[in-house]
């Protein structure tokens, strides 16, 4: 069989693109989290900017809608002193029939140094990474159902911040796991970082039982899924990706899998509750939990900026 090296790493094993948390060695994941720690304090400085990407152009290519992710990437890039160009691709070239690679070739001719890509097709950032010049870097900001590695990494940062170590942790990922690129990125990162137990929790239509092959425990009731766990990651119910009768109704879903203060009591008393956002209050999570003292949903957003700064500065420092 032909051996192919991880497309995210150069021949020295250094990170040049971030496409997925899958297959990334533990030392690279840890290096990203450690580097992010350095960037958290940048927002406390009188000058909230460091010049690591000064003179570089970062193109935000969002073929699919996003507010939070695009904004945090933009803040991260500007805090690193990069020039940021936001392209609302969904409404421009692609709709005029230009191919993905032609779009990239044109933007590369405008001296782009980094592409931050969100696309509804799984694998689009990987395709771009294979066709860019050696000095150009690609960061996946979410592709289809496949991966959302910076969300996965900021989740790891958040967990490490509150729980210090992964070795004795039980983490439950609850909800629409089937459609969730966040769940996949979390599972790969948690497994690599040595998390003791990862559970995926949801109805059989949204949590296929063959997920056990990923090294996780599959639970089809919320009670079993969150009992005694340290971290609860709630996922958004992705209406826009839902086809066919996977659920009777969102109301029904909340009754069985919605996280309420009563159900949260089954987890450890110091368990933290996370959510990648946007949250649907009353659909997958009760308002009282979102605003409760165990919720770390807003710190996740803040840490996301530091984690994205870390990823951008690390890949920018490595050549293909």
């Amino acid at each position: 069989m032909l051996y192919k090296r991880n497309p995210q790493l150069n021949k020295n094993g250094e990170l040049i693109h971030l496409l997925s948390t899958e297959g990334l060695p533990k030392d690279i994941l840890t290096h990203i989290l450690d580097t992010a720690t350095n960037f958290v304090s940048v927002s406390d400085r009188e000058v909230k900017k460091v010049p690591l990407l000064r003179g570089k152009s970062v193109f935000n290519l969002f073929f699919e809608n996003s507010t939070r992710t695009r904004t945090t990437f933009e803040i991260a890039a500007t805090r690193l002193s990069a020039d940021v160009i936001n392209l609302d691709i969904a409404r421009s070239s692609a709709s005029k029939g230009e191919s993905l690679l032609d779009t990239i070739a044109n933007l590369s001719a405008m001296a782009a140094d980094m592409f931050v890509v969100r696309h509804s097709e799984s694998g689009a950032p990987y395709l771009i990474a294979q066709h860019v010049a050696p000095h150009v870097h690609v960061i996946n900001a979410g592709d289809g159902r496949h991966a959302h590695p910076t969300q996965g990494l900021l989740d790891m940062y958040t967990i490490r911040h509150y729980k210090k170590d992964f070795a004795n942790l039980t983490v439950a990922i609850v909800g629409d796991v089937l459609h969730s690129r966040v769940a996949r990125s979390d599972i790969h990162a948690l497994t690599t970082l040595g998390c003791a137990e990862v559970r995926v929790v949801g109805p059989k239509t949204l949590v296929p039982s063959d997920m056990a092959q990923m090294g996780v425990r599959v639970c089809h009731t919320l009670e079993e899924g969150i009992k005694g766990c340290d971290v609860v990651i709630m996922l958004r119910l992705q209406n826009e990706r839902m086809s066919g009768a996977l659920l009777p109704s969102s109301h029904e879903f909340f009754k069985s899998f919605g996280l309420t203060p009563e159900k949260l009591q089954l987890a450890k008393s110091d368990a933290i509750v996370m959510h990648p956002g946007p949250i649907n209050r009353g659909v997958e999570i009760d308002s009282a939990v979102v605003d409760g003292k165990q919720s770390v949903i807003l710190p996740q957003v803040t840490f996301g900026i530091a984690v994205r700064m870390a990823v951008m500065s690390i890949v920018a420092g490595n050549e293909a």
């Binding site: 250094e14 290096h31 450690d34 580097t35 720690t37 350095n38 304090s41 940048v42 009188e46 460091v50 010049p51 690591l52 500065s313 690390i314 920018a316 420092g317 490595n318």
Partner: peptide, 26 residues
């Protein structure tokens, strides 16, 4: 720490040194 302002960043990447902590008003 010099890490955030190094001029050899493009060559060496980001070093993982301890971060700046100044417990006084500069």
């Amino acid at each position: 720490s010099s890490a955030m302002h190094r001029d050899d960043f493009a060559k060496r990447g980001l070093s993982n040194s301890a971060q700046t902590q100044l417990p006084f008003d500069v």
